[in-house]
Structure formats: C-alpha cells, structure tokens
Design a protein around this nucleic acid. Structure first.
Ligand SMILES: NC(=O)c1ccc[n+]([C@@H]2O[C@H](COP(=O)([O-])OP(=O)(O)OC[C@H]3O[C@@H](n4cnc5c(N)ncnc54)[C@H](O)[C@@H]3O)[C@@H](O)[C@H]2O)c1
Ligand SMILES: NC(=O)c1ccc[n+]([C@@H]2O[C@H](COP(=O)([O-])OP(=O)(O)OC[C@H]3O[C@@H](n4cnc5c(N)ncnc54)[C@H](O)[C@@H]3O)[C@@H](O)[C@H]2O)c1
Lengths: 214, 214
DNA sequence: TTTGCACTGTTATAAATTTAACAACCATAA
DNA sequence: TTATGGTTGTTAAATTTATAACAGTGCAAA
C-alpha cells in the first residue's frame, strides 16, 4: 500500500516554489527541452538542488536517474496539485494603473485561473474592456460575483477605499483576497488573504544594500 | 555597559515587518494617534502581539507601560535602522504599464528612498516625465547611474529583455535589484536580489481556496 | 493602601523550513 | 568486468522563525 498523498499539508513555501518551478518549466519546455536536473531548476530559482528534490519528494514525483525530471510530466503533476480541476475565477476591483497592468500581464497565462471581471466606480471605465476583461460598475459586484462563480478577488483601489472594498467582496462570498493596496485589511477566518506592498520589498532591498556598505 | 545593537543580524522577516510597522504607524500618526499597544499593531499586521514585542525588543525599543509605544519615536527608530542616512537612489527600467504604476505609487512616499530616473528604449517615452520622474534612453543608463549615484534598480521590462537588462544594471555598478518580470535572473554575490511574481501569489491564494473547499 | 488587571520585556519552547549526509542507482569508461 | 562519477530519494541535523510562558510593572478601582 503506497503512502497516501493528500497535499493538504504541504509547506506553504513548497506551494510557492511549485508555482515557480512550473513557471520555469513552462519556459524550458517552450525552448524545446524535455528533461531537467534538480540542480538546473535550483539554479534558476536561486535555491539548492536538495530543496528541489525534497519538494518533489513531497509531491511524490520521481525522476529518471541520470536523465533528470520529465518536464512535461512535472508540469502536469504540479498542475494537478495546485490548480483547481474546474478552474477558479478571479475578479479585480479598481481598474486603475496597477489593476490594468496586472490584468494585461496575467490574462491568458494560466488555464485554470482566469480574471473574468473588473470593477470600478469611474463611469469612464465601466462598460469598457481592458485586455479582454470587461469592467463592471461596483454596484453590480454582488450580482456578477455570484453569476460568474468568482472565488478570488484582487484589490487595486485607492488606499482609502480598501476597507470598504474588502467588505463588499467578503459579503459577496469571495473565498480568497489578494490585496495590493498599502492598507491592511481584516477578513473572516474562512477567507484566505495575501497582502503585498512593493514598498516593503524595496525597503528590504535598500536595507541590505546599505548593510553591505557598512 | 549596554548591549551593542548592530542590526546586522536582525532576522530577514523582522526587517520586512519593521517596514510594515512603519507603514501602519505613519497611518496611525496621520490619524492623530500618539501611542499604540503591541496588540494593536499585531491586529493590523495579522500577527501576534508577542511577535511585535519581540521585534521591538530586537531593535532595543521600549514602550511605556500601560501607555504602549510612542508612535513618533518608533517611526524614527525604525527609520534609523532600515533607512540609509544619506538616502538611496533608485532607478526603474521599463516605463510601461507596471513601471509607471509603481512610480506613481511610490514617488514621494519615503524620504530616504527615491526613484530618480526611469529608462526605456521607446523614443516616445524618452525625454518625458512620469509622475515627476524623467525617462532616459537605455543607452544613457551607465552614465546616469553613476552621475546620480543610483544604488538600486527595479526591472519592469518585457520578460525577454530581462537578462540583458539585469546585466546592464550590474555592469553599471548597481547594488540591489528588484525584479518584477517573470524571468528569474542571476546576479553576482555582492548584488542583493529580490524577485516577485504576482502569478505565484495568485496561485497560492487559489490553492488555499481550493483546499478549503475539499 | 491594597489588590487586580492589562500591559511590557525576555527567556524557554515549539514549529517550520532549510541544509547536510548518505545510500542506492546505473550509464559510461577503463 | 569493474571502478568512477553524477544523479536521485530520503532520513537526520541544523537553522530560522514563531509561539508560549511568565516575571515585572504601575495604574486604577476597591
Ligand atoms: N502593492 C503595490 O506594489 C502597489 C503598487 C502600486 C500601487 N499600489 C496601490 O494600488 C492601488 C491602485 O493604484 P493605482 O496606481 O492603480 O491607482 P489609480 O488611481 O490609477 O486606480 C484606482 C482605480 O480604482 C477606482 N476606484 C476608486 N474607488 C473605487 C471603489 N470604491 N471601488 C472600485 N473602484 C474604485 C478608480 O476609479 C481607479 O480606476 C492604490 O491603493 C495604490 O496605493 C500598490
Ligand atoms: N511581477 C508582477 O506582478 C508583474 C505584473 C505585471 C507585469 N509584470 C511584468 O513586468 C514587465 C512589464 O510589464 P508591463 O505590463 O509594464 O509591460 P509594457 O510592455 O507595458 O512595458 C514594458 C516597457 O519596457 C520598455 N522596454 C522594452 N525593452 C526594453 C529594454 N531593453 N530596456 C528598457 N526598456 C525596455 C518598453 O518600451 C515598455 O515601455 C513584463 O515583464 C511583465 O511580464 C510583472
């Protein structure tokens, strides 16, 4: 009897790396490569080959000795683990500079994850399409979220609109939020939240640059 | 004799949180608040109050019992630690959708960290200003980096230009890079690197949303 | 004045994550 | 045929990070 792999308790960091591995593997595949060694993946991701092998062990994937890992197989396996079979629909609230940049970047990149609606308050934006994504009025949010079975929301509204936007999304039944505004939000326990602020990252870079000077 | 605090070996995570604390504290200060408790900071950042107190202990800050921490003092102390005294100049390469969104967001937000130049290859962009930041030709990169003493570079060029852009920045003597393209780069050991891809974050959110369903 | 309460600061412990160590494997070359 | 080298898979150890436990403190209410 083989060990049951549930993937439920994969380390959070491993989940992140699986996404990164897939991104790298897709690129390799498009370059005509069919197999790859753990140390090659490691080099791309700036980590050690042990870590790569350990992650792959955790998801139960075995490579071929001396040939490495089959890129296509591995991409598919990672997909089986991190993607949702039926796909997950995403909405983005705030079709400003950042929102449009994200839509333009993301759209069409992943099969099982799709931005299917944008929302804004600005009448000039409502009714238009941006990189193929239709922009609706914020007043229709609740309706559209349910209609299109949207599970994840990305927040890119002005900072002072963040709290209200988060509330609206939660009330509409969203299950995951990615908040790009610099205003942290509160969500119920059953909503998964990630927040990102570029300033923190930039300050971190600046800190270690300063340190290396001293 | 008091313990010498060097800040050189603060945990990486603490550095990130200090930046986040400051962001939150600045907001509180602008709302007229003068003091704050560890559990209040913790709530904002979705962490525990122990962690906040531990971080502040590491930087040697003491609050007033039953009154909490003096917000202004703490902001200044965090600044003394993570900011560079003389300030650090930043350049952004690729003045497209994302690059302009980042500039517009960041400019004027921090005293000791300033985006002082943008670079692009598109003649329509070169010579213009975006949110006050002048866009130069990529051919002038080396000269301007040295002239303006730029230490950190942000990369927001198309993915297939990433490697070349990174090389150019490194050759110009940059000490830190923040790469927003989905193409990982290699840098020498003395250059500090951070990479961020929104797809990884979004896939992580989607994964945990899927998991909560099962 | 005294007691309890709500904080802080710090040390001890636990959990998460990374790295090291090494056996097993097998293609290739001697 | 036999050693060699380079790779995987896995367990063990180390490191990093977060949490728990608790003593110390001083305000406020009794
Ligand atoms: N995390 C990061 O790295 C990062 C980078 C840049 C910007 N930001 C933040 O992202 C947010 C957006 O930045 P931007 O440059 O795109 O700003 P922007 O002003 O260009 O866009 C904001 C958009 O939100 C719309 N909007 C306003 N109120 C709304 C509401 N209540 N509901 C729905 N839509 C609403 C506006 O009409 C506009 O289209 C800001 O909060 C900014 O601070 C974050
Ligand atoms: N990390 C993220 O979350 C995220 C989000 C969105 C986009 N992106 C990535 O960021 C990058 C930029 O995205 P965008 O939407 O702004 O694209 P864009 O096409 O709008 O902008 C790219 C800019 O780079 C300029 N450019 C091209 N080649 C150059 C070179 N060699 N040197 C200097 N400038 C050059 C172009 O003229 C253009 O102005 C892309 O790689 C994209 O994949 C990342």
């Amino acid at each position: 009897m083989t060990k049951q792999l549930t993937f439920k308790n994969l380390p959070h960091k491993t989940i992140e790396r699986l996404s990164q591995y897939r991104r790298a593997l897709l690129l390799c595949l498009s370059n005509g490569k069919t197999h790859i060694f753990s140390h090659e993946i490691a080099k791309i991701q700036h980590i050690t080959s042990v870590q790569v092998r350990r992650d792959l062990m955790l998801i139960g994937y075995s490579g071929t000795l001396r040939k490495g890992y089959n890129i296509e197989e591995l991409i598919n396996l990672i997909g089986n683990i991190i993607d949702s079979e039926e796909g997950i629909n995403v909405a983005i609230v705030g079709m400003g500079n950042l929102g449009r940049a994200l839509i333009n970047y993301f759209t069409g990149k992943r099969h099982k994850l799709e931005i299917v609606a944008g929302f804004d308050t600005n009448p000039d934006k409502i009714g238009n399409r941006f990189s193929g994504v239709e922009c609706y009025s914020i007043t229709e949010l609740n309706k559209i979220i349910k209609q299109k079975d949207i599970k994840v929301g990305i927040i890119t509204v002005p900072a002072d609109q963040t709290t209200e936007t988060a509330k609206t999304l939660v009330k509409a039944g969203i299950k995951g939020i990615l908040n790009y505004t610099p205003k942290p939000i509160d969500v119920p326990d059953d909503v998964y939240l990630e927040e990102y602020d570029m300033i923190t990252t930039l300050e971190k870079v600046a800190f270690y640059v300063k340190m290396s000077d001293e």
